[in-house]
Design a protein around this nucleic acid. Structure first.
Lengths: 246, 246
DNA sequence: AGGCGCTTGTGAAGGCGTGCACAAATCGCG
DNA sequence: CGCGATTTGTGCACGCCTTCACAAGCGCCT
């Protein structure tokens, strides 16, 4: 690779392009590495070996090295990775230094919890608005933010540039809300409603379905139960953490 | 394949073994198909084509056919798939006919919402117990269930056979809780705490980290922003739903 | 009864991701 | 100043998953 890197702004080091076309699987793991790095930094570590960081993030060390190599060479052979430098680099790649504005639609059971979730603010996001279609909920204050009616979405989006919309409505309303978010210029959506959304191709949708996660676990339970009833007995069973993406 | 299938109990049709070793990627999609099928059944559909079901589930039709072919042949050429039959078959494979017992540990912000989430009960799961380490929360009644102290876990597990444990505690407590669940005989864990759990190899862990989902979306925002600033302009951007697993 | 259109099930090819194993590079010590 | 210990970065092979394209099968219409 190339020498002399400390100093310049992250991502624009020298020869490395700002967007090295990271594999999707790598992107999904970067946040995990970042969390582990923050943990290490708080513990006072200056550098980490790939082995150490891999263990903290729950992945294979070879995989970690390959992932990090994709975003340029930020390690030192014989020493390891500079924790602070790597944190900056990953945060830059993930765009977390821009402190993106997030809005949440649907202040029901789940939405209420999400609105109060501290993990968002502490990891680079600002929840700037809460919406609901139910006029009875409008005005309610949650975590310092007051709930507004969904019809105000366009107006609020014009004031604050909203990067990400979170949908926590019943499935029947989700598509309408998604259309509204897209119309308001939102290009990333996190969908908690158990349904398929159709959006323009330039909009990214990620989905989290709590029941699906349970059903996948249920399958493995079923499988394990039918295996123990057979000669082979308990063989293995995955062992380490499975990612929730793909 | 084989003829004559209607009639016998699902999964034990005739030549097909109960566990055809489904690819992990297929398993992750089965719940999505199931949801779409229930939707179709409510709309009164008797049969669906792979094209139709694929559209409803947000996937490629070839992928859907291959997925379904893995669990035996339950379609009719020229006609499509029998909706009711397929529902039974998928529910059997996923083990949803056993109405598994779920316990939830950590009745904080998020845990509270999960305890009240209707989607669990409606999709084949029974939340049978809520736990928390905070004595001030013990006794609180949520959705008809009263919160018990975490020390009672072993006792409750002995009474009701708990299949799945959900962890919604702060990350610092998550490992201790996981150890407790494992000791109580739980072999599947759904972890909402942002940390890595280490468990014996026969225990399955799935993880849901809300902040990670946002960070992945943030990356794509960052990427899109840096692309529009370049000659190529907006090219595509995925188009359809991305799974949250992988 | 025969043919035609529609739909499933699957063989084959290609791409992506993982993990091994090792060469290259750096630091510290004698 | 040179050597050995240590750790990164990566070429390579393997396996999983996706996608295409098409043959086989089924029902309906004439």
């Amino acid at each position: 690779m190339s020498q002399q890197r400390h100093g310049s702004t992250p991502g624009e080091a020298d020869g490395v392009p700002a967007f090295p076309d990271l594999p999707e699987a790598t992107i999904a793991r970067l946040p995990e590495y970042l969390r582990a790095l923050h943990h290490l930094a708080e513990a006072g570590a200056e550098t980490v070996s790939s082995e150490g960081l891999a263990a903290a993030a729950g992945v294979n060390s070879a995989k970690l090295r390959k992932d990090l190599s994709h975003l340029g060479s930020y390690g030192t052979r014989g020493v390891g990775y500079d924790v602070a430098l790597l944190v900056d680099q990953i945060e830059y790649i993930l765009g977390l230094d821009e402190n993106r504005a997030v809005c949440l639609v649907g202040v029901g059971n789940l939405g209420h919890a999400l609105a109060g979730y501290a993990g968002f603010a502490s990891r680079g996001f600002r929840v700037v608005a809460l919406f609901d279609a139910d006029r009875k909920k409008v005005g309610e204050v949650i975590n310092g933010l007051s709930v507004r009616h969904i019809d105000d979405l366009a107006q609020v989006a014009a004031e604050e540039s909203i990067a990400i919309g979170v949908i926590a409505t019943p499935p029947a309303s989700a598509q309408v809300v998604a259309d509204g978010l897209v119309a308001a210029g939102v290009t990333s959506i996190l969908n908690f409603a158990p349904c398929v959304l159709s959006v323009p191709p330039n909009v990214d949708v990620r989905k989290v379905d709590l029941a699906i996660e349970l059903q996948i676990l249920s399958f493995h339970e079923h499988r394990k139960a039918s295996l123990t009833a057979l000669p082979g007995g308990v063989v293995d069973g995955a062992g380490d953490q499975e990612a929730v993406g793909s």
